[in-house]
């Protein structure tokens, strides 16, 4: 398993804009058969919105999907990696951050793809085992989440939290949208 993330990621992911309606985001998810869209504001990657976000933050709260902007339902916690890192490193990062997808950036910090646990699973037997091992970690209840009170704003129930402060690979380099 010597491939890099660039070899297995989904290239040029479908994006949502912060001002798009949730209904528009849901349509894009349906058309492309994906569960998550990176969210951009102009040239900046500012979040990610999943099908689950739409349900937990709009339907459950009675926000009208036709007029509620993606901005109000997206998750701002975006974990990213560089396109040249090895698959094993990507799986380890997912396990550590307890996420199933990573945004992939090139050397110019432009968003070039999304790599998911499913992408890693499909590579070969080694990839499948690495993904299963990551899933074991991701699905464990976190000590931090157990201690913290349930967060109404967080549809993941706190599982995406749990890394010590200062170590998160989160939007620290201000990744950008790639220009065609």
């Amino acid at each position: 398993m010597t491939q890099s993330v660039a070899d297995v990621m989904s290239c040029r992911p479908v994006l949502a804009h912060v001002d798009h309606s949730l209904a528009e985001a849901a349509k894009r998810m349906r058309e492309k058969n994906v569960g998550a869209l990176p969210v951009v504001d102009g040239d900046e990657l500012v979040g990610i919105v999943t099908d689950r976000d739409l349900v937990a933050r709009a339907t459950a709260r009675d926000a009208d999907p036709a007029i509620t902007p993606v901005l109000e339902a997206m998750t701002r916690h975006v974990v990213f990696c560089r396109e040249r890192i090895l698959i094993a490193e990507a799986a380890a990062l997912m396990a550590r951050e307890r996420v199933r997808r990573l945004a992939v950036l090139n050397r110019d910090r432009e968003l070039v793809g999304i790599v998911s646990l499913a992408d890693i699973t499909r590579i070969d037997d080694v990839g499948t085992r690495a993904a299963a091992a990551a899933l074991q970690v991701i699905c464990q209840p976190t000590p931090n989440a157990a201690k913290a009170p349930p967060d109404e704003e967080d549809p993941t129930g706190g599982r995406a939290r749990g890394s010590p402060a200062g170590t998160l690979h989160v939007y620290a380099e201000r990744p950008r949208r790639r220009r065609p």
């Binding site: 849901a26 998810m29 349906r30 099908d51 349900v55 709009a58 339907t59 009208d64 999907p65």
Partner: peptide, 16 residues
């Protein structure tokens, strides 16, 4: 599933 609600509900313009 949550995805059923997102894709067959929200994307189709169905209300809550």
């Amino acid at each position: 599933t949550d995805r059923d609600i997102a894709i067959r509900g929200i994307a189709e313009g169905k209300s809550a």
